[in-house]
Design a protein around this nucleic acid. Sequence first.
DNA 1: ATGCCTGCGGTTCGCAGA
Length: 271
Amino acid sequence: MIFVKVVTWNINGVKARIDNLLHWLKESDPDIVCLQEIKTVDDQFPRLEIEAAGYNVATHGQKGFNGVAILSKLRFDEINRGLPGDGMDGQARFIEGVFSVRNARGEPKALRVVSLYLPNGNPVGTDKFAYKLAWMRRLEDWAQDRLALEEPLVLAGDYNVIPQPEDAKNPDAWLGDALFQPESRQALRRLAALGFTDAIRAVTDSTDVYTFWDYQAGAWQKNNGIRIDHLMLSPEAADLLVSASVEKHVRAWEKPSDHVPAAIELSLQAA
DNA sequence: ATGCCTGCGGTTCGCAGA
């Protein structure tokens, strides 16, 4: 491979979406896939089908909801499950994989990729919103530590944050929502200010790039979407960015997830 | 708009999502 393609996709139930996923893997041909909302325990994850498609599998699941995973053509050198900072947090929302790659000069490098599923946080004013903000603080702390490694790092996932009004078809409709609260947006800006680049916004200022369309009220047909799935790049990863795009057409497939894949290519190759 | 869909767990409805 010339580039390493990394994609994030909130699949909204991997067992209900396995045919969809296998079809998409063939079409999109990603090297590393970050899945969110797998909605299953690790034992029930459709591991064999995905391995047969050529991917290594690392899961961090839980019963019924949440759950994240990383699929990779590259071998995992290391897998870390759970976001540090709260020993009482039993929700499966974070998994990190480490891979051996080479840069354009052929020099060996470590590539770190995180699949994260940030809490929704609704309704505002409840413990759910407090959990969201606390989780974002923990992510910020963790990211700050990782930046000291000065390695290419991709923080990919469903952030459940609309960064700017331009990231929603109808921003006014989200004013009271946890996804568009000033505190949520500010926390995402704090993460960016540490030195992370929003990959999609690095390549386009288009106002109709969305990654989620609600199942309800004909949101897809009206293109009433929001951009909440993000790939945040460390400086060392941003330097390697070749392309970034949203695979919007997947939303029109039979039995779709309400999210679509968001993809980047990095100027790296498998070691 | 209280809702509209969808997946899941566990049963024919409630919860969570965004």
